[in-house]
Each structure stands twice: as structure tokens, then as C-alpha cells.
């Protein structure tokens, strides 16, 4: 799974998008704080944070007994790169299709 795929997979879930928005808006926060204002358990929040963290969208830093998470923007650029890579891929594919159908020049 490349970077963009990990980002897209992480963002495919509505709860994770909402958590990411909350972290991006409120600044560094903990799994406990995130769970306290939602109808989900701290464990469920931690699981979502782990997926977001694997995608590089949040990172956790230890603060005493808690881990505080903040949002990272870098992977969003990787997501945008998907557009460039996908365009280049279709250029290659359609080039081969044209060679196939048009025959040798």
C-alpha cells in the first residue's frame, strides 16, 4: 500500500474523518478527550487514531501519562500526487492501446 492509498483508506471512514477534523480544529488532544465527547469508547478512538497515524495524518507525542495527537498536513500532498500519478498511468495505458489498435506506424 503506497502513501496515497493509506491516506485514502484512512479517510474512507466517516468516524476517522470526523476525528481528524476535530484534532485539526482543536489542536493536540488525547484519545480520552476525543472519546469523552462522542458515543464511542476510548479503545475505538485509539484504533482509529492508529489507522490515521499509520497514514501519517496524525502523530502522537507522549505528555506525562497521556499521548497527545496532532494533525499533519504532509500526507494530503501525497494524496494530491495521486492525481498526477493517475494521469501519467492513463497516458501510458492509452498509448499502449493506441499501439495495439493502430498497429505499427
Amino acid at each position: 500500500m503506497n502513501d496515497a492509498d493509506a491516506v485514502f483508506a484512512a479517510l474512507a471512514d466517516g468516524t476517522r474523518r470526523e476525528l481528524l477534523r476535530a484534532i485539526a480544529t482543536s489542536g493536540p488532544t488525547t484519545a480520552t478527550q476525543l472519546a469523552s465527547t462522542r458515543h464511542i469508547t476510548r479503545q475505538a478512538v485509539a484504533k482509529h487514531l492508529s489507522v490515521l497515524s499509520d497514514a501519517g495524518l496524525v502523530s502522537g507525542h507522549r505528555d506525562g501519562r497521556e499521548v497527545r495527537f496532532h494533525a499533519d498536513t504532509e500526507p494530503l500532498a501525497a494524496a494530491r500526487e495521486w492525481i498526477d500519478a493517475t494521469g501519467a498511468a492513463w497516458d501510458r495505458r492509452l498509448g499502449r492501446l493506441r499501439d495495439l489498435l493502430n498497429g505499427p506506424e
Binding site: 491516506v7 485514502f8 479517510l11 474512507a12 466517516g14 474523518r17 481528524l20 477534523r21 485539526a24 480544529t25 494533525a71 498536513t73 494530503l76 494524496a79 495521486w82 493517475t86 492513463w90
Partner: peptide, 19 residues
Amino acid sequence: TETRSASWVGCLLTLGAVL
């Protein structure tokens, strides 16, 4: 035309605006 599912696009836009 290759289109990514709408959910993440909405998220990118929202998050981009927030950031």
C-alpha cells in the same frame, strides 16, 4: 475518467480549509 470516491475529497477540502 478516473474519479476517487467522494468521501475523501470532501474531507480533503474541509481539512484543507481548517488548516
